[in-house]
Design a protein around this nucleic acid. Sequence first.
DNA 1: AAAAATTTTTACCATTTGGTAAATCCACGA
DNA 2: TCGTGGATTTACCAAATGGTAAAAATTTTT
Lengths: 207, 207
Amino acid sequence: MPDGVPKKPSRIQMRNRRVILDAALNVFSQHGYRGATLDQIAAEAGLSKPNILYYFQGKEQIHLTLLSQLMETWLDPLVELDADGDPKSEILDYVQRKLDMARDLPRESRLFAGEILQGAPRIGPRLHSELKPLFDQKCAVIAGWAKAGKIADINPQHLIFSIWATTQHYADFEAQVSVLVGGDPDAHDTASQHLREMFGRMLCVKD
Amino acid sequence: MPDGVPKKPSRIQMRNRRVILDAALNVFSQHGYRGATLDQIAAEAGLSKPNILYYFQGKEQIHLTLLSQLMETWLDPLVELDADGDPKSEILDYVQRKLDMARDLPRESRLFAGEILQGAPRIGPRLHSELKPLFDQKCAVIAGWAKAGKIADINPQHLIFSIWATTQHYADFEAQVSVLVGGDPDAHDTASQHLREMFGRMLCVKD
DNA sequence: AAAAATTTTTACCATTTGGTAAATCCACGA
DNA sequence: TCGTGGATTTACCAAATGGTAAAAATTTTT
């Protein structure tokens, strides 16, 4: 048998790994890294603690696996921002994709927020190696649009920060948002309309 | 001696309480509630753990004291939003005050963010009793300005959310921001200019 | 200075928590 | 059906953690 080549995971392995990661996402996103316990994760997954540790080397590895998987999903909307598309609608569509993600993946959003809030102790390196290059590239695209007069002359970096901040706010600060605008079933659409209006105006080229 | 009337705290009590709360703010804001330990707080404060517990009933009370004190500071910029002032500059000044707070009180911002991120388990009641009434009141003020044609017809609730999100982002996501725009000494001014531009455009009454 | 009150330290304790060793269970191919 | 390797449980453990009791030290009051 060739060494170093892991054999393909069995059906049970596939299922349990997924179950554990899903349970861990619930617990980590709600309580943060140190606030989460293996017992909680095990209970949520319907498995025993030693059984969890049969599939993952430890608590940190579970957390790291989640963050790694998340990275790709998280950057995807920005990857899709097309330099050859219509500038204004490219950016507004990006806003919409991020807002939809905050609605559809609030646990992931909070997991990421918690990690950054604590100084990115575990995902820091990937911010440099993965996020930074993509960010710089897309900033250059936006700067190009601005220079060409296709959109207003704004600061691309801070524009992206504002998009991240406003969209993720609805997931990360949901506890506060729900207190202040509780029970509105159309909340997502209202937010979408508001952000479209805001960033639409921001990008308009003034005469 | 009259019962229930606490005598005034001594000089030592005043000093140590302040020292402990400052140390706790450092630790809680960096590691979150459960991630923080009394030993860490004690070390940071330069006191022994039992001595900490001589001044506060327990870990939770320290955290709660911090959040309580923070509430006032946190709402202050919004309190100052004046219904009788010039609408556009009132709002832009509010943005500026919030951004300055993110720069000057990043620990407080992260403490608050961490609490909300985890579902506001300890400060939840105060969101209802203190934040909500103020929020509703100021939303009404802004709605009045919009109705009177003094500013664009925007959604006041989501406008405030966007202001909170964009300003606090610089404190709460500082680990990410510093990776992406590292080492710019004028970062705060650049952000200020960007937000002025963005919210200024947002509020302009279109013809 | 002596007494009283407050502050600090020393020495603990019970529980929680991440993790391990080894025995047992079980699915599945020969 | 029986053996085998993967999957699961049982029974632990050491360290960390929030917290306490009581003695000792220090400050304040008389």
